[in-house]
């Protein structure tokens, strides 16, 4: 199965992991690959921890990435990025937003947001890019396009022509938000 690339998108319900995984799938299909993706809706959303699986290659069987075979982890939130590291193979790439969402127990003051996650992630996975998504998105014109900045950064780690990325974004993003999303994607790709 070495011709399959496994991508995991992790974050907090409502952060937009679903749309990002849709765009990725569209890119891979346009580039001529077989694609499968899997995620959980419903009770697991509502601010809970979420993980989407996207796989592409010549022929993909399981829609779920086998444990320990993830090639790229695309993290929307720092603690969730760390939580799902065991799904990755040694030497995998990690691209994550430096964004923190407190869990219920942290909001209540019963626990604190864990410290030192960046160093811990890097010690396991040297190919780790931590992106200040909110700042870069604001600079691109709107803090809401942070995910697209991240997507641009992820695209640099996937050997697929840029035109497929741009076409997929054009299809999946509302027309009035297209220009700013393309700008945000370019920002991420230049990182």
């Amino acid at each position: 199965m070495s011709d399959i690339t496994n991508i995991l998108l992790v974050g907090v319900g409502g952060q937009g992991t679903l749309l990002a995984s849709e765009i990725l799938s569209e890119v891979f299909m346009r580039a001529g690959y077989d694609v499968k993706k899997s995620e959980i809706h419903g009770m697991s959303q509502r601010g809970g921890s979420v993980v989407s699986h996207v796989r592409y290659g010549r022929e993909v069987f399981s829609p779920v990435v086998p444990e320990g075979e993830g090639d790229i982890l695309f993290g929307f939130e720092l603690m969730e990025t760390y939580r799902y590291l065991p799904l990755l193979r040694p030497g995998a790439a990690v691209v994550a937003n430096n964004y923190r969402v407190p869990s219920p127990s942290i909001l209540l003051g019963q626990e604190t947001y864990p410290e030192g996650l960046e160093g811990k992630i890097r010690s396991h996975f040297p190919d780790f890019l931590l992106v200040d998504g909110l700042r870069l998105a604001s600079e691109a014109g709107n803090p809401r396009v942070a995910n697209t900045v991240l997507l641009g950064a992820v695209s640099k780690r996937i050997d697929i022509d840029e035109k497929f990325w741009l076409a997929a974004i054009e299809k999946m993003v509302p027309p009035k938000a297209l220009e700013i999303n393309l700008r945000a994607f370019g920002t991420g790709r230049a990182l």
Partner: peptide, 13 residues
């Protein structure tokens, strides 16, 4: 699987 530190859980709300 590789071991990671215990983290606060994140249930739906």
């Amino acid at each position: 699987p590789m071991a990671v530190d215990m983290l606060p859980v994140r249930p739906p709300n």
